[in-house]
Amino acid sequence: MIKVLFFAQLREVLGCANLELEANVRNIAELRAQLAQKGQSWQEFLASDKALVAVNQTLVNEDCALNSGDEVAFFPPVTGG
């Protein structure tokens, strides 16, 4: 299983804080594509130019490989400080 988390505005527009799915995607790009099938807002707000992504708490790129047990987090560009 892969655990997927959503934060801030992304969590609110998707109406979802976290979900789990089978580890049948090889990388982040494939995960985004699979999640985009969940609906219009998922397709729109999870686009790679809108949502950053971290795997096991480290920012990664689209080609980052995924394995069972990974924690993936999608979130908007950060605004702390």
């Binding site: 505005q9 908007p76 950060v78 605004t79 702390g80």
Partner: peptide, 19 residues
């Protein structure tokens, strides 16, 4: 920190709240 640490600010104003 401003671009790499995972913090997000939501603003509360008289017109409502927004990220």
């Amino acid at each position: 920190l401003k671009t790499r640490a995972p913090f997000w600010k939501k603003e509360h104003t008289q017109q409502g709240e927004h990220w």
